[in-house]
């Protein structure tokens, strides 16, 4: 198991992940391709917190209905902030999940699971555990997809430029 150094050192990876996810969701009409799962529909929900990194953190919180489109969120990107916390809506096949995610720890909060079929308590519990496994798997695989792109200089260079164009041009749109 890897040593987990001070989480601050790698916190930028989590923020870059969520920012990339926003970018991918927008440019592909909500569909983010994950090798092991196929297309995952990603939508950013009603809460988006962008933070600058460094010792003094400032955040821009947007709670509008479509915060990813709001001008404040775009402006925050343009001044170098990245997504620190977000509310996500994920769809894979017929399953729909809604959850909050913290970029620095990938902690999931307020996870809303699909309606259950089972009635008995024991079966309900098993079904809920399976659904939690499923949403965690989706989030982890999205993160893995990002990291594979990020750590490979050949794939990252063009993606970085596309992200830059999106951050700067999208903010001016």
């Amino acid at each position: 198991m890897p040593n987990q150094p001070s989480h601050d050192r790698f916190a930028f990876l989590g923020r870059e992940f969520l920012t990339w996810l926003w970018f991918e969701a927008e440019r592909n009409n909500g569909a983010v391709q994950v090798e092991s799962l196929g297309p995952v529909r990603v939508e950013f929900g009603q809460r988006l917190v962008l933070e600058s990194s460094g010792t003094v953190r400032e955040d821009s919180t947007d709670k509008s209905e479509a915060p990813s489109l709001a001008e404040d969120a775009r402006t925050a990107l343009r001044v170098g902030k990245k997504v620190a916390r977000a509310r996500l809506l994920l769809d894979l096949g017929e399953r729909h999940f809604e959850l909050g995610i913290d970029a620095e720890t990938l902690t999931l909060s307020g996870v809303k699971l699909p309606t259950l079929l089972a009635g008995e308590d024991d079966q309900r519990l098993e079904e809920r555990l399976r659904l939690i496994d499923e949403v965690e798997n989706i989030v982890d695989e999205l993160y893995m997809t990002f990291i594979r792109l990020r750590k490979d200089a050949e794939t990252w260079a063009p993606l970085r430029e596309a992200l830059r164009t999106w951050v700067l041009d999208g903010a001016q749109a």
């Binding site: 198991m1 982890d140 893995m144």
Partner: peptide
């Protein structure tokens, strides 16, 4: 017991 963070997730995967 160790918390799962940004790096541990990768190891688990």
């Amino acid at each position: 017991i160790r918390p799962v963070g940004l790096l541990t997730v990768l190891w688990l995967r």
